[in-house]
């Protein structure tokens, strides 16, 4: 594990990140409420507790970089600047959603912002990201592709085939992909130790000659600093890199994971001491950038934005029947 260097992030950015983290948290909590009210259907996987990873990495990426992500994709989409109303409307299955209501929670896309989507088959999107990275170099750009996936996906054949290709193509400087492992300790109810013969997941990339490291995934400043260095290196070299971020989800795996027999309340409580919002709030308070009044302001602002997103989703029409057969084929 590499440790944080002294903070190089400007105060205004830290405050912006704080607002973003609080907003994403309130947004995710709202989706859980809307799910319970039957406004959101299907599967719903929130990233409560894991927000610092997408925020740190996507803050380190350039606006023209691209990314692929698993079904746990709300926060990635929000921090990239997609309208929260459109994200909520997608979860509500409405025409105003990011994908006109045809993808839902697991398939948020915003190609105009380099978001090549959320995918529902564990590990299945990893090869896509490797090919996307190849395409970016083939086209003569210095853009980078980020690929987010869970610890569970580390055990899929897709990861290993994709990593081998990335290692091979990277030798020629043709595969600028950053593998971001969101190690939240569990794949549904199966802990990393029970699923991976090598519990230190980053090391598995050694097999493909892909440089790798572990980093704290709860402190957004740490994540950002690692991401900044890694993304810059990948951009410069066209070679892949893997970062295993150590994080934790405070919510259940999905909305149906109510009893969580695979972990203890004490364990969750321990991790809550390292809640990414808490860590950043503490830092900001220490530096005199935040006080109780400011916190209340941010909370109120976040809550209002969430309610605006809900209002947009509620007001957005359902996709009309013509949408059923649209987008199956191109022109």
């Amino acid at each position: 594990m590499q440790h944080a260097q002294p903070v190089t992030v400007p105060a205004e950015t830290l405050l912006e990140w704080y607002r973003t983290l609080v907003f994403c948290r309130r947004f995710e909590e709202q989706t859980e409420r809307s799910f319970r009210r039957g406004k959101i259907g299907g599967y719903l996987h929130v990233a409560i507790g894991q927000e610092a990873v997408p925020l740190g990495f996507l803050s380190a990426a350039r606006a023209d970089d691209v990314f692929f992500v698993s079904y746990r994709d709300h926060v990635h989409t929000l921090v990239r600047g997609t309208d929260p109303g459109a994200v909520m409307a997608e979860l509500y299955g409405k025409l105003g959603g990011t994908c006109k209501g045809k993808g839902g929670s697991m398939h948020l896309f915003d190609v105009s912002r380099g978001n090549y989507g959320g995918y529902g088959i564990v590990g299945g999107h990893i090869p896509l990201a490797v090919g996307a990275a190849y395409a970016l170099r083939y086209q003569g750009t210095d853009r980078v592709c980020l690929c987010f996936f869970g610890d569970g996906a580390m055990n899929s054949g897709a990861l290993h085939e994709a990593a081998n290709l990335a290692g091979l193509w990277g030798r020629e400087g043709l595969c600028p992909v950053v593998f971001v492992v969101e190690n939240n300790q569990y794949g549904m109810g199966t802990s990393v130790e029970r699923a991976s013969a090598v519990a230190e997941l980053a090391r598995r990339f050694d097999a493909y000659d892909i440089p790798n490291e572990r980093c704290d995934g709860m402190d957004v400043v740490v994540v950002y600093e690692v991401a900044r260095r890694v993304v810059d290196q990948v951009r410069r070299t066209g070679r892949p890199y893997a970062v295993e971020t150590i994080t934790y989800r405070f919510s259940g795996h999905g909305a149906a994971d109510l009893f969580q027999p695979y972990r203890t309340k004490e364990e969750v409580e321990r991790w809550r001491q390292r809640d990414p919002i808490l860590l950043l709030e503490r830092r900001l308070r220490q530096e005199g950038l935040l006080d109780d009044a400011r916190v209340r302001e941010v909370e109120a602002w976040a809550e209002q934005r969430v309610q605006e997103a809900v209002a947009f989703a509620e007001a957005s029409p359902e996709p009309p029947p013509e949408e059923l057969y649209r987008d199956v084929y191109g022109g």
Partner: peptide
């Protein structure tokens, strides 16, 4: 660069080809 000999890794290189196509190749 245009004629890529792949390893025996159909899942990997067909998946990668899909990603290439999504990015405009």
């Amino acid at each position: 660069r245009r004629v890529i000999d792949t390893p025996i890794s159909e899942l990997g290189f067909i998946g990668a080809a899909i990603g290439m196509a999504m990015l405009g190749l």
